[in-house]
């Protein structure tokens, strides 16, 4: 009804009179123009400037002399760079792999029929939706050196306390575990959305043909999840490598840079050491790395479908 009302109300005379009415084929481009303008300002301009910064020696206050590829050469000689490259990979790999497994298990669980599953679905999304700062406050409390819940439980079991945030190995485990806790709900949600659109009759047909539950899962469920799984995995790799909040808020990259990923490294060079050249080269290399990874994964996806 409202559709008809509004279409009859249109004042045709005014529309026809407008002399500046643009040719119809320009319209889609005009509609994209505002978006493109802001993308150019906020990402393309910084990208070009970033390339230039990475070729200069400079601080936040003033640009310095042109040094060619010297910043990159310095990076490739520094152990900090390899350390953060390695940590970025480890972080992304474990986050995506474990979030996927948890997400899949919980999506399959929530796809079963039981009372209160709507509530469970919403409640399981909470870790994903709360601000990163809030989750870090709560986890910091749980894993605090002394008096933290985890260590109280451990000591009641007669196990010595673990200093999660001051020992490199444990800090890495803690940062990854908390990142998994923050990201598995997204995986769960998208897999569940996909599970719910699989045609029920496929399962019925399978059962009539005498397929076991395991076979149904293997030959009907998994193939239907393949496409979404690959796409969400690509997104999650990108988000993991770009994550600043989890390691920064939990450990600030410490202890002794054990949990410093590429983003934190770039941040430390730029804002901590006031070396814009070095910071920009790390940031640019991160973009290159992400584009290479995304291209490989998308090619893989096209191959498998």
């Amino acid at each position: 009804m409202p559709v008809q009302v509004s279409s009859t109300r249109v004042n045709t005379r005014r529309v026809l009179k407008t002399p500046t009415a643009l040719p119809i084929h320009m319209l889609p481009y005009l509609l994209l123009l505002p978006s493109l303008a802001i993308i150019l300002l906020i990402e393309f301009y910084p990208f070009l400037t970033g390339v230039s910064y990475s070729l200069h020696k400079g601080s936040l206050l003033s640009a310095g002399p042109f040094v060619g590829l010297d910043n990159y050469a310095r990076l490739f000689r520094s152990s900090s760079f390899y350390n953060s490259l390695w940590f970025s990979f480890v972080f992304a790999f474990f986050n995506v792999a474990i979030s996927y497994m948890l997400g899949l298990a919980l999506a399959l669980f929530l796809n079963l029929e039981f009372p209160g599953r709507g509530f469970c679905r919403v409640a399981l999304l909470v870790p994903w939706i709360v601000p990163a700062v809030v989750s870090i406050v709560s986890w910091k409390w749980l894993i605090a050196d002394r008096g933290g819940m985890v260590n109280v439980i451990l000591s009641s079991l007669g196990i010595r306390p673990i200093y999660f945030l001051s020992q490199s190995g444990w800090a890495i485990v803690a940062v990854i575990a908390i990142k998994i806790w923050r990201s598995f709900p997204f995986m769960m949600l998208s897999l569940l959305a996909q599970l719910q659109v699989i045609d029920r009759t496929l399962y019925e047909a399978g059962k009539i043909d005498g397929a076991s539950n395991r076979q149904l899962f293997w030959y009907i469920t998994l193939p239907h999840l393949k496409n979404i799984s690959i796409i969400q995995a690509i997104l999650m790799v990108i988000w993991s490598i770009n994550d600043f909040e989890t390691p920064f808020l939990l450990t600030q990259g410490g202890p002794s840079n054990a949990t410093e990923n590429l983003i934190l490294l770039s941040y430390r060079y730029t804002f901590g050491r006031n070396d814009v050249g070095l910071g920009s080269s790390v940031a640019l290399l991160t973009l290159v790395l992400l584009m290479v990874l995304a291209t490989i994964m998308m090619r893989q996806q096209r191959k498998t479908i």
């Binding site: 906020i42 400037t49 770039s266 940031a283 973009l287």
Partner: peptide, 15 residues
């Protein structure tokens, strides 16, 4: 845009 590392935008924009 989706994969753009924000730090790369932030350095020039901050300056």
């Amino acid at each position: 845009v989706q994969m753009f590392p924000l730090i790369l935008a932030i350095i020039p924009l901050f300056i």
